[in-house]
Amino acid sequence: MSQSERMIDIAGVHKTFVADHGTVTALEPVSITIKEGEFISIVGPSGCGKSTLLRLISGLDQASGGSIKLDVSGRKRPVGFVFQEPVLLPWKTIIDNVRFPLDTSGVSRAQGDKTALDLIKMVGLAGFEKALPRQLSGGMRQRAAIARALSDDPPILLMDEPFSAVDLLTRDNLNDELLRIWQSTGKTILLVTHSVEEAAYLADRVMVMTARPGKLKCIHNVELPRPRGEETKLDPAYHALVAQLRRDLRTPAGEAH
């Protein structure tokens, strides 16, 4: 299978919300072409339209203008989405939640259970299969949501601050786990984060966005060698990039800090 050069093709996409008190420009026109198998991080201050962009790509919201094309050859569910909150079904156990996308697309129970159990183990929730969401901590729920997003193996994975409710140590582990999944499955991943370190560590490219109005400020190529690991975090190039990202985020926002 040849890799698509234009897995996600975003051309001049913008979004304006109409609210009671007038209109809100959530996103000024954005254009970017993302290759199949690319890992993109998105950083930016609160309210700069990161979630909005992911929702537009997933088709949950319609753009006010511009076009978004996904090269997914008619798959019914091209994107997996890890929302900013876990959004688990509170009446279903963890394994039932993880299996939910499979159950609703006609996969056999046995096959679904097998996939779900593997994923639950992978996100470190082994032993909690039969627990209900309310019995788990926020970070554990979020990990269950990640397992659910992966369960029906979507070619594109959108993640909206998936690790913000997780402690730093677990977060490092999940980052490495995510890189492993990404490398073994060749998924195209867009990940929103508030951590510039995380963005630099994971991505092929980092999109930097600014707020009021939300827009794409610049894109950095991350030239750090793969596979990445602890030695990446010692690489001077990594530190230079992190510092650059910080500067990018700081300069325009005279009021934000």
């Binding site: 997933s58 088709g59 569910r77 994107v79 989405f81 909150e85 959004v87």
Partner: peptide, 14 residues
């Protein structure tokens, strides 16, 4: 009904 649940069902194309 939590609007996020609506997002979920739309995303999964239920």
């Amino acid at each position: 009904l939590d609007p996020k649940m609506k997002d979920l069902s739309k995303l999964l194309g239920l």
